[in-house]
Design a protein around this nucleic acid. Structure first.
Length: 305
DNA sequence: ATGGGTCCT
DNA sequence: AGGACCC
């Protein structure tokens, strides 16, 4: 089997993914819930997050609460509390910033951490730095995380998912092929159902099958994002590391049931009022928040159907 | 499933 | 504007 990259660590990118984040936050706030079947999503009647104990009983995300209770009697269903999750998230990123100045906040519960060159500072391997990060978050926040380390973002993503929950997986450049052969093409970050089925027509079933194609093939059939993924799978960094997440737009959208046919439909039904109010409060919020940044302006406040 | 995003063509 | 993909 051929080697995709000869160097072990030309750079070291970690991807951190919290385990069952929303439920972990609830369990950290209410320790009596630890080790139990717990889910979040009571208010809408649909499960949006669940503990590993509940997953083991076959409860799935998107399930009706009523079905979850049937499959898993005794499951504790909680209202979601996004403000709390946001606070845990902020504290988690604060911890990460103690380990490296270069952090990408990818979502509430995910981050990329550039660890390149930090082995000397910590006098240990990249994998051991990841263990220190994992332990610190565990001790200070009572949140369990999984961490993957490799030489590109796409490979770090694969690594963090490789062992979960509470896993640490390091994929050095000279061992990429050993891991990619176990990864289905549809499980690669950025490869959705459409692209996966296209690639399967060319007999590409695993991430390794894709990485071993020649570049001309990839350029012939696929667009830019997929060429980047292809390069990253081979160990060549192509996706930019984004240190600051500043939203380019803020919007509020809602669908109407039944679909609106005429302008009055958007005004008359009383259930559209909360939407009108939220647009109004969003506008007020933006005016307050952007007051002293005169280069920002409203391009559109839209109603979507 | 749904709602909020990004990037690319 | 529409498509594909992400969490």
């Amino acid at each position: 089997m051929q080697v995709l990259s000869v160097h072990s660590w030309p750079q070291a990118i970690a991807h951190l993914d919290a385990d069952a984040f929303f439920v972990s936050c609830e369990q950290a706030s209410m320790p009596a819930l630890k080790g139990k079947c717990v889910a979040v999503g009571k208010e809408r009647g649909i499960i949006i997050a669940l503990s590993y104990e509940a997953k083991a009983k076959g409860v799935k995300r998107g399930m009706f609460v009523s079905d979850a209770k049937r499959i898993c009697p005794g499951i504790i269903i909680l209202d979601s509390n996004h403000e709390t999750y946001g606070l845990f998230s902020v504290r988690m990123f604060e911890i990460l910033k103690r380990f490296s100045p270069k952090i990408e906040e990818y979502s509430v519960d995910e981050a990329f951490i550039d660890l390149t060159g930090l082995r000397r500072l910590y006098s240990c391997s990249y994998e051991e730095i990841a263990v220190k990060i994992q332990n610190t978050i565990e001790q200070e926040l009572s949140i369990s995380v999984s961490i993957g380390i490799s030489i590109t973002k796409v490979l770090a993503k694969i690594a963090s998912k490789y062992k979960k929950p509470h896993g640490i997986t390091a994929i050095p450049g000279n061992k990429i092929h050993l891991y990619l052969s176990n990864i289905l093409i549809e499980d690669v970050w950025g490869i959705g159902p459409n692209t996966a089925s296209l690639l399967k027509k060319f007999d590409i079933k695993t991430a390794l099958d894709f990485a071993l194609k020649n570049e001309n093939f990839v350029k012939k059939y696929l667009s830019k994002p997929y060429i980047q993924i292809y390069k990253e799978l081979k160990g060549e960094p192509s996706i930019e590391f984004i240190e600051k997440i500043s939203p380019k737009s803020i919007s509020k959208a809602k669908s109407f049931y039944p679909p609106s046919q005429k302008p009055e439909d958007l005004i008359l039904p009383h259930q559209t009022m909360p939407f009108a109010l939220s647009i109004y409060s969003l506008t007020l919020f933006l005016i307050m928040a952007l007051k002293d940044r005169c280069f920002l302006f409203f391009k559109a406040i839209s109603l979507a159907s």
